[in-house]
Design a protein around this nucleic acid. Structure first.
Ligand SMILES: [Zn+2]
Ligand SMILES: [Zn+2]
Ligand SMILES: [Zn+2]
Ligand SMILES: [Zn+2]
Lengths: 130, 130
DNA sequence: TACATAATGTTATATTATAACAATAACTTT
DNA sequence: AAAGTTATTGTTATAATATAACATTATGTA
């Protein structure tokens, strides 16, 4: 069974903010929004983000330098993520597809090499923007 | 047929450097290495990089902020890229798999949405590092 | 308690990327 | 060739993203 992860003060503040945000947040946007709670320096934000990513509570959208809460039942697959990104409105959604993750987790390259960790970002137009 | 793309002076200088590099290069590493050729400012580098990415001559490794030349017969699939990244030695290889690109290009999410563009980064240990 | 580990606070700095504006070069159309 | 248009270049300044280094405090464990 998973060891119950309890969040530290800063981790909890920053996770709550990201979790209730309708869109991915950037580190300095987070910083600005938690200054009233006493978090004053970028490093405090980045440290909490690092831990939250490690725990699988949030994911980083690499092409956008932004962070989104995992809604995939706190990602068992913290290290195997897939997102869709709308190129017009920047709506970003975590894709939760057993088929996709199975395909990618079992994918073997030319050397027969398998990879348990991956990050996939799809780009296109969301429903609203088409 | 594809319009033959001819590179501008700066684009050619920067492409040549990336193309002959055994590893992905970062923007400021590129800048440092082309200063002897008269390219003095970050913006000159970033502008050339943008165009080269557009043309599919190079790709950006998003999780590393680094650029690698496409060796996939100058990527017909400039907008559908996949890489493997060794977490120890940072060896990075473009994956060229018809099966993978077919699977991802035809992948439909829960809303039945298809995406023609994607970027996939696999993480693991390369042969040498295992 | 005593020890070890994780989290925090703080200042400074490194790294990555773009804004704004002016000047040239290259390509089109007449 | 002339005139108009677009792509590329040059330059300075600045914005945005991220980490180094060091001191302190809190938490967990033997
Ligand atoms: Zn997730
Ligand atoms: Zn949209
Ligand atoms: Zn390619
Ligand atoms: Zn390796």
């Amino acid at each position: 069974m998973n060891k119950m992860q309890t969040l530290s003060k800063n981790q909890q503040i920053i996770f709550d903010l990201i979790d209730k945000s309708p869109e991915p947040l950037k580190a300095y946007t987070i910083l600005f929004n938690v200054q009233k709670k006493g978090i004053k320096a970028p490093l405090q934000v980045y440290r909490a983000l690092d831990k939250l990513v490690e725990m699988g509570k949030i994911h980083k959208i690499e092409s956008r330098n932004a962070f989104i809460a995992c809604h995939n039942s706190s990602c068992q697959v913290a290290k195997a993520t897939a997102f869709s990104i709308c190129e017009i409105c920047e709506k970003i959604t975590e894709i939760s597809s057993a088929g996709l993750s199975k395909y990618l987790t079992s994918f073997k390259d030319k050397d027969g090499m398998k990879y348990s960790k991956y990050n996939l970002e799809f780009f296109g137009l969301c429903k609203k923007c088409r």
